[in-house]
Simulated scan of single mutants.
Amino acid sequence: MQFGRLGMVAVLLAVWQVASGRWVDEFWISKPSAIWDVLWGWISRGEILTHLEATLTEMALGLFFGALGGVVFGFVLGRVKWLAELIDPLVTAVYSLPKIALAPLFILWFGVDLLSKVVLTAVVCFFLVFYNTYAGVRAVDDDLVDVVRVMGGQRSDLLLKVVLPSSATWIYTGLRLAVPYALIGAVVGEIVASNKGLGYLLAHAAGTFNTSATFAALFILMIIATFLNFLVDWSEKITSRRQ
């Protein structure tokens, strides 16, 4: 299967290389060799490290705080029904807002530095993790809860031995969805206002009509997103084995 995928990618790159400049104007689609030249130039000059550090820091902090808040609020509202019914209209109203449209407002409030990108990323990730966690907690089998209570289990036992294991799959689903959106939030914040980061590279390349650099930035983002999703899948497997 792996060799088949590698072969498919190799064929796609070969066709792309041949088609560029022959069947399609290179200005529109560039070509793999030109994209590699741009990537190697960024790497050899060490330029890419600064941009990677900025984007990954924004993404990691935003994902951490957004996921943490989503899990905590998801558990609280999932277990306290009257509180969930009370604030549900407010949560729904905020969730319905296009999160990307909040980027200019956050930059106005928090400036163009790290904080505005972290807040935007956290907000984007929060709702994805929150709704999945909330649904997972609400879907816990009531019979299991009753059994633990009959056996003298405390509230901590219910949370750690019933609610958390039962909702773990839902939480990881939310995390899996949040990971690429964390990257999107950080990049969009950089596109709106920044002087470093992969989003800045992407905006600068597009603004100067540099197709090769645009594809190079997109390629780096694709690699990062794929690696992060692999980490989420791996951590889910490890956690499942321990439960």
Rank of each mutant, 00 (worst) to 15 (best):
E190K: 09
G4P: 08
L228G: 02
L108F: 12
A182F: 13
F230G: 02
E236R: 11
K31E: 10
G174M: 04
G197H: 09
V71R: 06
D157S: 01
T55Q: 06
G207Y: 02
L77D: 00
T214F: 02
T55H: 01
A203S: 11
I107H: 06
G111Q: 14
V124P: 07
F3V: 06
G153N: 08
R149Y: 11
G7H: 08
W16L: 02
K237G: 13
F209W: 10
V71E: 00
A60I: 02
A193T: 04
R241P: 00
S194F: 10
I171L: 03
M59S: 11
V232S: 09
A206Y: 03
I184P: 03
A168Q: 00
L175T: 03
S33A: 13
V129M: 12
L159Q: 06
I224R: 03
L183I: 01
F230C: 10
D88R: 14
N132E: 06
L108I: 15
A54K: 09
W82N: 09
F27C: 14
P89T: 00
V147I: 09
Y134R: 11
I223R: 03
P104K: 11
F64V: 11
A19L: 06
V192P: 10
D143P: 04
V188G: 15
L128W: 15
W82Q: 08
A206S: 02
T169V: 14
F230W: 15
G207W: 01
I107A: 10
V15H: 05
V15Y: 00
A34D: 10
P89S: 02
D143E: 13
G207K: 04
F65Q: 12
E85N: 13
D37K: 11
S194N: 08
F73A: 12
G69K: 02
G74I: 05
V112E: 06
R45Q: 14
L83H: 08
N229F: 04
V80I: 13
F75W: 06
A168S: 02
A19D: 04
F73Q: 11
G197D: 08
F230K: 00
F64D: 05
G21E: 03
A122R: 10
G199R: 07
F65N: 10
L61F: 05
K117F: 08
E236A: 07
K117T: 13
L158T: 03
D141F: 01
L61G: 10
Q154R: 15
K237S: 11
L12M: 15
I191F: 06
G174Y: 03
V80G: 11
L160N: 15
V123P: 12
L90A: 05
S96N: 10
A216F: 13
E85V: 06
K196F: 10
S194I: 02
W109L: 12
A193L: 10
